[in-house]
Structure formats: C-alpha cells, structure tokens
Amino acid sequence: MGARAEPTLPRPLQALAAGFYPQREDWGSHTLPADFLIGPDGRIQIAHYGRDIADHLPLPRLYQALGTPSSNPPPSVP
C-alpha cells in the first residue's frame, strides 16, 4: 500500500496560517490611477496620472506617441 496523502487546507486558509491577513482597502485616499507607456529602452515615455478610477491615458495621445494615426489603430492582441 502507498503512503496516505496529508489533507491540505484550502489556499485562503493556507495564507492565513502563513500570516497573511485580509485588510480593508481604502481606494479613495491611498491610491492614484496611472497609465505608463514604456519605451523599447525601458524608460517611461508617457506618464498619465488620473483624477479618478475612470481617468485613463486618452487613446489619441497613445496613438500619437506610437506614431499610429488614430483612424488606423494597431490590431488588438487576442
């Protein structure tokens, strides 16, 4: 007969046992939405800091930085 496998705890309980405790997130006062365009050299080309969760880098500005006309955006990645 083979050895019996020890029962394992579900992953959330494993995290608690390891000392990770859920905390309440206060999204309003500690976070700032931001979008960054990183160039091929690894440097930030554009940094856009949003006013709220829905404020993102405008697509025309992104297309301009990429040298792509906004009427002919790059193909989407599947």
Rank of each mutant, 00 (worst) to 15 (best):
P74A: 15
P75L: 07
G50N: 02
R4V: 08
G19L: 03
P40R: 06
S70R: 07
P7G: 10
L32R: 09
N72S: 09
V77F: 13
H30C: 15
Y21Q: 15
D55G: 06
G2L: 07
P73I: 10
P74N: 02
G42F: 11
A15S: 07
G50Q: 03
E25K: 08
P12R: 07
P12N: 08
Q14C: 13
V77D: 03
A18Y: 13
L13R: 04
A17W: 10
A3G: 08
F36D: 06
L59T: 04
L59G: 04
D52E: 13
P40S: 08
A17R: 14
P74Y: 00
A47V: 05
R4A: 10
A47M: 01
A17E: 13
E25N: 11
D26L: 12
W27Q: 06
Q45I: 04
I46C: 01
E25I: 13
H30D: 09
P7T: 11
Q14I: 10
P40T: 10
A18Q: 07
E6G: 13
P12M: 11
D35M: 00
E6S: 14
G50L: 02
P22R: 10
S70W: 04
Q14G: 15
G67W: 00
G50H: 11
G2S: 12
S29N: 15
F20W: 15
E6M: 14
L66Q: 02
Y49N: 05
L13H: 13
P12A: 01
S29K: 10
A34R: 05
P10R: 00
L66F: 01
H48Q: 03
A17Y: 13
P69H: 02
Y21G: 13
G50P: 08
P69S: 05
R4T: 10
S29L: 10
A17H: 07
T31S: 07
P73D: 11
G42C: 14
Y63W: 09
T8K: 09
L16K: 02
P7V: 09
W27H: 11
G67N: 01
P74G: 05
T68M: 15
L57F: 05
I53P: 00
R51F: 00
T8R: 07
D41H: 11
I44R: 00
A3K: 13
L57N: 09
F20S: 15
A54D: 07
G50R: 00
T8M: 12
D26H: 08
I44M: 02
A15Y: 06
Q45V: 09
P7C: 09
N72K: 14
G42R: 03
S29E: 09
G2D: 15
G50V: 00
A34H: 03
F36T: 02
L62A: 12
A5F: 12
L13A: 12
A5L: 08
R11W: 14
D52G: 06
R51M: 04
A47I: 02
G50T: 01
L16G: 05
P58S: 03
G39P: 05
P73M: 07
R4G: 13
V77C: 08
Q14L: 08
S71T: 14
A54S: 05
P78L: 15
D35L: 00
G2H: 12
R61Y: 04
I38T: 04
N72H: 14
I46S: 01
T68L: 11
